[in-house]
Computed example of a mutant assay.
Amino acid sequence: MSIGYAALLRGINVGGHKKVPMAELREVLEGLGHADVATYLQSGNAVFTSDSTDQQALAEALERAVEKRFGFAVGCLVRDHAYLRAVAEDCPFPAAELEGRQLHATYLSEPVDAGRFASVDAQAYLPEEFRLGERVMYLYTPNGLGRSKLAEALGRPALYKGVMATTRNWNTVVKLVELTRD
């Protein structure tokens, strides 16, 4: 039975760096034997179906294929529809009342504990807030991510040592749930 997945590529097509045309990304995914391949936006979101249940193996195969095709390494997370739906449903912020640019999900390669972010004084950034979920960080930025001081503080690489992280706005979070339905 085929499972619907989203592939979340980190840091492509940003500021002219690590260019990955979406048509070529679709070819890479099809070349790996995946079906129902589609891309969403230009920021490294692809959906596909596969009979495999090993999300880590799917991500690693895609990372190798992207590096072979484009000549640079790109971190990739692969998440199934059930996980993506749970992220949307478990959001601790009132998503339905917010604009997509005000709410973000940072998908994480593995679970992290709150202690990892203890150096970030959350009170100092209010009304901006973040909360941790299952391999995800929810980030509420009322004025958008680009103006967020909290996002800047949370973006320090030292906080993610050993963990791959990639962020999507809430509109993309919701769309990926829709696109990965079985």
Rank of each mutant, 00 (worst) to 15 (best):
D36W: 09
G71A: 06
H17K: 14
A35S: 13
L9C: 05
I3R: 06
V112W: 05
R85I: 01
V37S: 07
R79F: 06
S109F: 02
S2D: 13
Q42E: 09
G16Q: 04
N13E: 11
L32R: 06
I12P: 05
Q55L: 02
Y83K: 01
V87K: 06
E30K: 02
C76W: 03
G100F: 14
V78Q: 13
V87E: 12
Y5L: 13
A38K: 04
V66L: 09
E63S: 10
R79S: 09
A6G: 13
C76L: 11
F72R: 15
E27F: 00
G11R: 00
L8E: 10
Y40K: 05
G75V: 05
S119W: 01
F72P: 15
H81V: 01
R64K: 11
S43Q: 00
D36C: 03
F93W: 13
A105F: 12
E30H: 04
S52D: 11
H34C: 08
H104I: 04
P94D: 13
V28Q: 09
A6V: 08
E63D: 00
K18I: 04
A105Q: 02
V78H: 08
L8R: 05
L41V: 15
K18H: 15
S52P: 05
T39K: 07
L108P: 04
I12T: 14
R79C: 07
G16R: 06
A105T: 01
F72D: 15
E60F: 11
M22V: 04
A86R: 11
T106P: 00
Y40W: 11
I12V: 14
V87W: 03
T49F: 08
A61I: 01
T106D: 06
L8Y: 01
A35F: 00
E67T: 03
A46C: 07
R64M: 09
S109Q: 10
G44S: 10
H17P: 08
A105I: 02
E110G: 06
Y83T: 11
F70M: 12
A7M: 12
A118Q: 07
G115H: 10
K19I: 15
Y40D: 08
A118P: 09
A6S: 13
T53G: 15
G31P: 04
E99D: 15
G15A: 08
A96S: 13
A35W: 01
G75E: 10
A23Q: 09
R101V: 05
A95W: 01
K68I: 00
K68E: 15
A65H: 11
L84F: 09
D51L: 02
L29C: 14
A6C: 10
G75M: 10
S109A: 15
L98R: 12
R85C: 10
E27G: 12
F70T: 08
Y5W: 05
D51Q: 07
Q56A: 14
C91Q: 00
N13S: 03
R69T: 12
T53R: 10
V20H: 06
Q102P: 02
F117W: 03
E30G: 02
V120L: 03
P111S: 07
A38Q: 07
V20E: 06
S43H: 10
L62Q: 07
A38D: 07
L41C: 06
D113Y: 08
E110Q: 15
L8M: 14
E89M: 09
E24S: 09
F117E: 03
T49G: 00
E67F: 04
R64F: 01
F93M: 00
A82H: 15
E60D: 14
D54I: 03
A46L: 08
C76Y: 05
F48Q: 06
